[in-house]
């Protein structure tokens, strides 16, 4: 790679324009190659003036508290070595860190949605559970950030979609369920649904779904999207988590 190529790669890395192989290459060079690091630093300095054109936005009052709570959970590099795991779990600092951590609350929100859902599904679910343990569960949240449907995948490649609450499908339309087996790739349809009730979906032709895989539902013509990609608005989405 010529010096000019490296320089272009460094600049496009700083701009955030790299994708795919070039992005991986730039990240590798940034970790290992001092001359590349120097090129990146030069471009950062050249472009830094743009950062000064952003209007100041006053952070919300809790942002600093959340950062400070995050510090509890991860001591500074130079501070004492982390206590052994057994002690860390019981340390009040860590608990307080969790209490304030964005990520924790985010997962707690999902867990709460899941708990509500399990209640909604009722006793039948539990009676059936031994034989029909789902492998992954995705709670799809609607525009109002409320659980709108739940999707469960099973070890045999089937999946089940259960709409929640008062989901309505617009007249003369369907909802179509999509997933992203490759997070960087195009969505793939896994089923078209005309009535709001629990339905089976077919995932057998797709790579085995993984946790964090995204599922989304769009509104489509009655027979599904004519293009093979979502054409209507996305009304719900959520990522899958491993069912324990």
């Amino acid at each position: 790679m010529t010096r000019d190529d490296q320089d272009r790669l460094a600049a496009e890395h700083v701009l955030g324009l790299l994708e795919g192989e070039e992005r991986t290459l730039a990240e590798r060079l940034l970790d290992s190659d001092e001359s590349f690091q120097a090129l990146v630093r030069q471009w950062r300095t050249r472009f830094a003036e743009w950062d000064n054109t952003a209007a100041d936005v006053v952070p919300s009052d809790v942002l600093w508290q959340q950062i400070e709570a995050g510090l509890e959970a991860q001591p500074a590099a130079a501070a004492v070595r982390p206590a052994p795991p057994a002690r860390r779990e019981t340390s009040p600092g860590l608990l307080q860190g969790l209490w304030n951590s964005l990520a924790f609350w985010r997962s707690f929100g999902m867990a709460g949605a899941l708990a509500a859902l399990l209640l909604a599904l009722g006793v039948g679910y539990f009676a059936d559970k031994a034989t029909r343990q789902p492998t992954l569960v995705a709670v799809l949240m609607n525009e109002a950030n409320q659980p709108g449907a739940v999707l469960r995948t099973f070890a045999d490649g089937r999946a089940e979609l259960t709409p929640l609450g008062n989901m309505e499908i617009p007249h003369n339309h369907s909802i179509q369920v999509w997933t992203f087996p490759d997070p960087a790739g195009a969505p793939v349809s896994v089923g078209v649904v005309q009535t709001a009730k629990t339905v089976l979906l077919e995932l057998r032709n797709l790579p085995r779904p993984h946790s964090n895989q995204l599922f989304a539902i769009s509104v489509e013509p009655l027979t599904g999207s004519p293009t093979g990609l979502p054409t209507g608005p996305v009304v719900m989405k959520g990522t899958a988590s491993t069912a324990l």
């Binding site: 952070p59 919300s60 942002l63 959340q66 950062i67 995050g70 510090l71 991860q74 500074a76 590099a77």
Partner: peptide, 15 residues
């Protein structure tokens, strides 16, 4: 805000 939050945690860790 999430980006700023994560940034400050990284700054602390990598200072």
């Amino acid at each position: 805000e999430e980006a700023v939050h994560d940034t400050f945690l990284q700054v602390w860790r990598k200072a």
